[in-house]
């Protein structure tokens, strides 16, 4: 574990050397995600300025939901963005074979190979939104609340990561895995709003099958004092179970990797 942490530090250090070589690009990359988020924020602001409640949730409350899912996504974006491009970036080009002959875990190597700075913009947006929502809703940041928030965001990040890992594994068979990842990943759009606005079936889907609800709606409900029962505490368990499943799927795929011959 300690060895991998030390290794990751080396990878990260090298990556930043590359990134800072092109400073303007570094800034544009981060700003791009912020601008994308702004389009959504402006939309929700424009709408809720005139219709102040969304199924009983006010603007600040919706911002909290959105901020939490953005934070969770940002972790995945920063540390596991290579899962998106494993197909064309590593499998097709034969780069992936490089990982298999090295004395470290191939998944670790894949993830550590590219820290994605664009995710920093996501992280900043999410943090500002959650912070602003907490202030406006007058929710005091006690050590317990802070701990709960951290656990919720981490669990959310793991859920994003695990789902992407499962879909990225398809690259070992079909090479171009982005469309598959995109279909599942886009389900997180549902979790940008309180799940109560949807049909019951969608809520079940977002809780038990593609559990993005634990990245935003359930922790937000708990912080706002809305009763969601034990689901408020289930996030870390769901994340852990999903992580184990996804790693198994990845190992299964790895065993069947045959290379593309490039």
């Amino acid at each position: 574990m300690a060895r991998y942490l030390a290794l990751y530090r080396h990878f990260l250090f090298q990556r930043f050397k590359i990134l800072l070589e092109y400073r303007v690009n570094f800034i544009i990359g981060m700003a791009s995600t912020v601008i994308q988020q702004s389009a959504w924020l402006l939309t929700i602001w424009v709408v809720m300025r005139q219709a102040p409640a969304l199924a009983g949730w006010g603007l600040s409350e919706v911002m909290l939901v959105y901020g939490l899912v953005t934070l969770a996504q940002s972790l995945n974006h920063m540390f596991a963005d290579n899962l998106w491009i494993i197909g064309w970036g590593y499998v097709r080009s034969g780069q992936f074979d490089r990982f298999l002959v090295r004395p470290i875990d191939p998944l670790f190597h894949l993830l550590a190979d590219r820290f994605c700075h664009d995710g920093l913009g996501h992280f900043a947006t999410g943090a500002v939104l959650v912070g602003a929502a907490l202030v406006q809703l007058q929710i005091a940041l006690t050590p317990l609340t802070a701990l709960y928030l951290a656990a919720a965001v981490l669990s959310g990040g793991v859920i994003f990561f695990a789902l992407n890992l499962i879909t990225a594994t398809t690259a070992f068979w079909i090479v171009e895995s982005i469309p598959i990842t995109q279909m599942v990943f886009n389900m997180h759009e549902f979790a940008k709003y309180p799940l109560t606005i949807y049909h019951q079936g969608i809520r079940v889907l977002l809780t038990w099958i593609i559990p993005y609800g634990f990245a935003s709606f359930y922790p937000a409900s708990y912080l706002l004092g809305r009763d969601v029962g034990a689901l408020a505490w289930l996030g870390p368990v769901v994340a852990a179970v999903l992580a184990v499943i996804s790693y198994r799927v990845w190992q299964f795929g790895l065993k069947h990797y045959a290379g593309t011959g490039s």
Binding site: F26, A31, S32, I35, A39
Partner: peptide
């Protein structure tokens, strides 16, 4: 940094084209 710029273009266009609201 053309990927980042293309994402900026997509984000701005989404909102100001009237595709979101």
């Amino acid at each position: 940094e053309t990927w980042g710029l293309s994402m900026v273009r997509v984000g701005v266009a989404q909102f100001f084209s009237g595709a979101l609201v």
